[in-house]
Design a protein around this nucleic acid. Structure first.
Lengths: 326, 326
DNA sequence: CTGAAAGCGCTTACAG
DNA sequence: CTGAAAGCGCTTACAG
């Protein structure tokens, strides 16, 4: 292992000069070239531990992800990683397994590891989150949820749901079931529902009913059976793509055809929404782009630049075959 | 930030004693209690950089993942992380984005970061992989592929494919299409095909044809149309679940019904295979368990224990509605 | 622009 | 069982 001392000796300069070359760079052109050459030759890379020990900061951004096996999370992480790399930062992932307790522990342990900042892919923001985030002295950015006291990056759940609602009505649907998710997840459980509600506000002559699951996926098919038996809608608007795909399955199992007898929509724009048959009409969010954005926002937070508390990432409605015009 | 020096002062002992308490622990009961108490009170956690700088090793296991947004990868990572935590190790993920060049760079950069070992979720093992893995002086474990010169953990692709083949024939299928994946991925492209071939060796009166895509998913629907038009099988055995799901879609688009007119099977046991309609018959691999196993295997490699070069993780055939008895 | 020196928070022989 | 001291590989005032 070559150290900064070896480089210095080979270049005939002091360690501090090599260090300066590596950092601020107030070094003469001649020595610069000499050092550069030697570093290339030896394949020297600075010891990150020594750097961090001395500099008391790292170029590591910690991320906390509730579920590694979720399309939205993975895509967001890919976006964060991609952007961080270009800025010479590194991403460290910690997995909370949907456990809010563990999420808080993870914040602590990332702080102990002296990460430069934390990006939390959030599901639910509790008071304990708020207080620990404020108490910690590195920037924390939440993605997917918002809170007025914390920097956040959200998807435009509200607008997306509004557009979905408008589209559904434009297709002539009058008996509409909205299958929502648990309200503890504000973005998915509440914002999507409220955006949808807004869209039907001025509609006349329609019948809308709201249903809710305990999670972002189906707890049991019985809720779908219930919706069909008691309400008999022409369309079910589901709050997530996974929910929509599971609903489709439950619908089929009753011998009902999609979209001929019943239409379905989702939210998310997961890869699967396109792969299945019929293709799922959905509001697509740009998870990877949001990840890029989050990384950039984190960097400006670290640099102490003036950064808006809330950033909103876009969406696009994808029209596929799961919705029929009535 | 409290340091080991603060603890020492408060406890009235030397730093080395505190350090000893933290490590080997040859400390008297009395001082042990004293130190323990102070550590608890101050919430002291050792500075990981200083530790690593001095000890020249870390308790970090680097993982290299080709795609973060793949079910198999995510579940494996969850398994690795889970197990590593119980052994007081930490997982560091680096993403290669399916780029073999980057995979090799990642190995280098993990080594630079002094990780204790590397787990590579492999897709393709090239000669350059072999040589860099041998040249590096920390243990490297590949998961998902095998190579006789490297420690590996594989899924039982061969046996699983054999069982799938046997099952398909037990259901009376005689015109069978096998839709394989790119052979560069040996586990998926070759082992699954060979296992399947083995199962049909002694079958009489059947007609089997082999097709191949360039990736693990469908490049275009035309290959499915081709299979149907030129061969007209009663079942298509697909080398991955994603391939099977996309094939189902292509099949539907021709107005063909599954499984009435055509049966489909996959490999993987992805969450989606269950969520779609009809449910996909598939060989399920235990990705999370494999991750657990990989972590344990890595630890015994680090400890220099005697470890078999190759470990094989199990599988289970899941029977769902996508296959019909003819 | 450059170098000598101190120090970041630990660990590890060594001596007692 | 315990402590003093050296040193891991860097960075950063300070002085020139």
């Amino acid at each position: 292992m070559t150290t900064i001392g070896d480089i210095a000796k080979l270049a005939g300069v002091a360690k501090s000069t090599v260090s300066r070359y590596l950092n601020d760079g107030s070094v003469s052109e001649a020595t610069k070239r000499k050092i550069q050459h030697i570093i290339k030759e030896t394949g020297y890379t600075p010891n990150a531990f020594a750097q961090s020990l001395k500099a008391k900061k790292t170029n590591i951004i910690g991320t906390i992800v509730p579920r590694l096996d979720s399309y939205a999370s993975s895509r967001t992480l890919i976006g964060i990683d991609e952007e961080l790399k270009t800025m010479n930062y590194q991403m460290l992932i910690s997995h909370s397994n949907l456990d809010l307790e563990r999420e808080i522990e993870n914040i602590h342990s990332l702080v102990t590891q002296k990460v430069a900042g934390i990006i939390l892919l959030a599901t639910e923001i509790t008071d304990r989150h708020i207080s620990i985030i404020k108490e910690v002295d590195i920037p924390v950015l939440i993605v997917g949820q918002q809170h007025k006291e914390i920097h956040s990056l959200i998807h435009n759940d509200y607008e997306a749901a509004y557009e979905v609602g408008k589209y559904v009505m434009s297709q002539g649907h009058k008996r509409i079931a909205f299958l929502g998710a648990n309200e503890k997840n504000v973005a998915i459980g509440i914002d999507r529902k409220e955006g949808f509600k807004k869209s039907i506000e001025e509609a006349v002559d329609i019948d809308v009913r709201f249903f809710e699951t305990n999670r972002n996926t189906l707890d049991s098919v019985s809720i779908v059976y219930d919706i069909i038996d008691t309400f008999c809608p022409s369309i079910i608007v589901c709050a997530t793509d996974n929910l929509a795909i599971e609903t489709m399955k439950a619908v089929y199992s009753k011998g009902i055809s999609i979209p001929n007898d019943l239409s379905i929509t989702g939210f998310g724009g997961y890869e699967m929404a396109e792969m299945i048959h019929p293709g799922l009409t959905t509001a697509k969010f740009f998870y990877k782009d949001a990840g890029n954005l989050a990384a950039r926002k984190m960097l400006s937070l670290i640099r102490g630049e003036d950064t808006p508390m809330k950033t909103v990432s876009g969406f696009e409605i994808i029209y596929r075959e799961s919705v029929r015009k009535v």
